[in-house]
Structure formats: structure tokens, C-alpha cells
């Protein structure tokens, strides 16, 4: 009973606040609407017995949304939403594609003859997940690690304004850095 009520409340919050993300004007409200959607999904994941992953999702998303708010203020043309303006392109086509996608998925979900449940969750699910990640799924974990490292390198390279090749020339042979401002700050 409690689980049913929680499911409906969290499910409706997740979908409605997800939709509000693309309807609200103020960027602060948009960020918090997206955060509410993520927290509702984290709650649903906890409801399904994955307490650890639910809490990890919640913690990660809180930080991610705060970072996102900073970038929004940096890059959005209308961060405060004080001046109502349209920031859409091809709204009708996007809506048609999205409603069509949902319809196809819903038909598949409702018509599929889902298999019956096999087995029960392990008593210590987080422990089992840790064993899997450090054992049978080690290749997954290593791939994730290498991908994250590549992301660190790529993001630093992409977002650096003036790197050492700009400062010391293509062969890094300049005796002094070619800086617009002195002091070695690039």
C-alpha cells in the first residue's frame, strides 16, 4: 500500500517536473525542476530495493545540477528568465517525434508478454554489486575507468584557452612564453 502510494507520487513528480524543465522560463526554476525529476527517479530506484544506487544517484544529481546552474548562468542568453522569449526550434516536429516515440514504447511495454520473475534479490544487494564490479564485471569497471580518464584529458584539452603550444610555439622551442600578460599566467 505504502509502496503503491510512493510509486504514484514519485512517478507523477518525475514526469511532471521533467516536462516543466522545458516549460519554465527562469533558469533557476528549470534547474530545480530537473533536480526534482532526478530525485523522484532516485526515490523510485530506492523503492525497487536498490538503496545504494538510489542514494548515489541523488547525491550525484544534486552536485551535477549545481554545476549545471553555474554553466547556465555563464552560457544562457536569458539566464534569469526576466525577459520572456522563445528558445525553441521546430517545436511541432519535436513534439510529434516525442509523442510518437512514447506511443511506440508504450505499445511495446503493454503488449509484450513479459517473462515471470526468476529468483529473489540477494539479502545484501550492495555487497553483491560490489563483488560483481570487482569480480565478474571487472572489464566493465576498467572500461569505465579508462573512459573517465579519457574524458578528463579531452575536457581539459577542449576547454583550455591558451595551451603550451600557443605560448611556446609548435615545437615548444621558444625561449620565452608569448603571453599577452606577463607573470607566467598564460
Amino acid at each position: 500500500m505504502l509502496a503503491d502510494v510512493s510509486f504514484w507520487v514519485l512517478g507523477i513528480v518525475a514526469v511532471l517536473s521533467g516536462f516543466a524543465v522545458f516549460r519554465l522560463n527562469s533558469m533557476a526554476r528549470v534547474t530545480f525542476a530537473l533536480l526534482a525529476s532526478f530525485l523522484a527517479v532516485a526515490g523510485l530506484v530506492v523503492l525497487l530495493g536498490l538503496g545504494y544506487l538510489g542514494v548515489v544517484t541523488a547525491l550525484m544529481m544534486v552536485i551535477e545540477m549545481v554545476v549545471m546552474a553555474v554553466f547556465m548562468i555563464m552560457y544562457m542568453m536569458n539566464p534569469a528568465g526576466l525577459m520572456p522569449m522563445s528558445m525553441y526550434h521546430n517545436k511541432a516536429g519535436s513534439m510529434a517525434i516525442s509523442v510518437g516515440t512514447f506511443a511506440v514504447l508504450a505499445v511495446g511495454i503493454l503488449l509484450t508478454d513479459w517473462p515471470v520473475r526468476r529468483g529473489v534479490p540477494a539479502p545484501a544487494q550492495t555487497y553483491q554489486l560490489g563483488l560483481a564490479l570487482m569480480g565478474g564485471q571487472m572489464l566493465t569497471m576498467m572500461t569505465l575507468g579508462v573512459t573517465l580518464f579519457a574524458t578528463i584529458v579531452a575536457t581539459v584539452v577542449l576547454s583550455t584557452g591558451r595551451g603550451r603550444y600557443d605560448r611556446y610555439g609548435d615545437d615548444l622551442a621558444a625561449p620565452r612564453a608569448d603571453d599577452p600578460a606577463g607573470g607566467g599566467v598564460g
Binding site: M72, Y75, M76, Y88, M95, I97, V99
Partner: peptide, 21 residues
């Protein structure tokens, strides 16, 4: 619910002009 979230996200990714959105 998951399909709803996916479809809403797809709408946003297709219709928003701002790269952050």
C-alpha cells in the same frame, strides 16, 4: 514512467536552441 521521461527528454533535446538545455 521511464518511457515518459525518455520521450520528454527527446522532445527537449530536439526542440531546444540552447546547448545547455
Amino acid at each position: 514512467v521511464a518511457a515518459g521521461l525518455f520521450a520528454i527528454g527527446l522532445y527537449g533535446a530536439l526542440s531546444q536552441q540552447s546547448i545547455v538545455m
